[in-house]
Design a protein around this nucleic acid. Structure first.
Length: 371
RNA sequence: UCCGAGCUAGCUCAACGGUAGAGCAGGCCGCUGUUAACGGCAAGGUUCUAGGUUCGAAUCCUAGGCUCGGAG
């Protein structure tokens, strides 16, 4: 496995290629989120047509339903969902935060009550690696503790210590699974809240770990963006150059540029698909809501400069109508368009890095895409 | 023609003598490792009309109008 950096901008932005068990993935890359082995509203044909080569799935959700045994019996995640692409899995660490009312956390691991049926489950750093291996995921993350915002430094420090110890406990299990034939990439999660000193400790610990890439968690939890980018840039500056950096849970189109400017190579986010389901459209000149009354008789495409099939065939008036009626096709068409926009933006970013004009391209994008 | 039921926000309905509310629709906004086809905000009224009783009426009384049943 290898990560090759093909071009680097003076700002720190990088363009490269990550070799994965499912083939090469060009970076920077935006990964759509397929929590339950599905990018909501889309199927694998849609993902192929979008050219999506990397996705994020969630081992905790799949472990609860349909269950690891079912996915394994189906022939693994990829056969189960008919999609031969790079699937990295979230460990379930984020659900420790987002489903916090259902859990109890201790040094050994996390005890969860299922949000589906109330049944009791125990997650440990070791078990979540085994779950990801059994699912057939191509990229494994570690169980982590993502502190809430705001968070006092002592609390954040305890969460980080725990997360680092959990990484140390995960590594031998990864080695074991590899010895048994697994080829998946190991992407442990780095925490540290918004405290540069903690992030530095986390990065230095990460640099010594047997990892293929670094998952950077704990951002976009409610802090202001200036803080995000400052702390992120500092965090990245402590990381070894030769590993891909995966910023978890980010972001909007503008965030793509800012994250890449900080030296990030991979991102995932529910944002484009989630907002699509309520009509928010990403377009060349910015974001708008296609269900707004002013589009009722607008027979132009969602984004006149877009090359996706939705824009080639349908109008704002029609798509707005579908969504107002809650016609199921609306969710698919609007999600598809937004993901196409994200992919196109990432291509633009990659091209600008390779051509040495990232900064100017970013300025140009921010001027025309105000939010 | 008679009998009955009803008439309140764009729609479907609450409130049954004490400041007229809700759901939906319509108008916006938000969503960042998805418990999210979700959540929030604002707007929306001569309570069919005209009289009357009452400190006070959507509510009680009288007359009229309209709607829906039933009978002839």
């Amino acid at each position: 496995m290898a990560f090759r950096i093909e071009a680097k901008d003076p700002s720190g932005a990088r363009a490269g290629v990550l070799d994965t068990p499912r083939g090469p993935v060009e970076t920077p890359v935006f990964m759509p989120v397929a929590t339950q082995a599905s990018v909501k509203a889309l199927d694998s044909d849609d993902l192929r047509r979008l050219g999506s080569r990397a996705m994020l799935a969630n081992s905790y959700h799949l472990y609860l339903r349909p269950g690891v045994d079912t996915v394994k019996a189906a022939g693994g995640l990829h056969k189960f969902m008919d999609h031969d692409a790079f699937y990295i899995t979230d460990s379930g660490g984020f659900q420790v935060l987002s489903l916090s009312k259902f859990r109890e956390i201790d040094d050994e691991g996390v005890t969860f009550r299922s949000h589906l049926d109330g049944s009791l489950h125990r997650l440990t750093p070791e078990s979540v690696i085994r779950v990801q291996a059994a699912l057939g995921s191509d990229g494994w993350t570690t169980l982590d503790e993502c502190p809430p915002f705001p968070c006092e430094e002592p609390h954040a420090a305890r969460a980080l210590d725990r997360t680092m110890r959990w990484l140390d406990r995960s590594a031998p299990v990864v080695a074991e699974e590899r010895a048994a034939g697994a080829q998946s990439l190991f992407f442990p999660i780095l925490q540290g809240s918004l405290f540069p000193a903690l992030r530095r400790r986390a990065a230095e610990h990460m640099n010594g770990a047997p990892a293929d890439g670094v998952s950077i968690g704990g951002f976009m939890v409610g802090e202001n963006k200036e803080t995000t980018w400052n702390v992120l840039a500092e965090t990245v500056s402590f990381l070894k150059e030769d590993r891909p950096r995966y910023l978890m849970g980010v972001g909007t189109p503008r965030d793509l540029w800012d994250a890449v400017a900080c030296g990030v190579d991979m991102m995932d986010c529910v944002y484009p698909t989630r907002v699509a389901r309520s009509g928010q459209i990403m377009a060349r000149t910015g974001r708008y809501n296609v269900t707004n009354g002013r589009f009722r008789r607008d027979f132009t495409p969602l984004d006149p400069s877009c090359s996706c099939f939705v824009c080639a065939r349908y109008t704002r008036a029609y798509l707005g109508h579908l969504l107002r009626c809650k016609e199921l096709s609306a969710y698919r068409l609007l999600s598809y368009h937004n993901l196409h926009f994200m992919a196109a933006t990432v291509s633009e970013i990659r091209a600008s890095i390779k051509e040495g004009r990232f900064r100017a391209a970013r300025e140009e994008f921010f001027a025309r895409y105000p939010l």
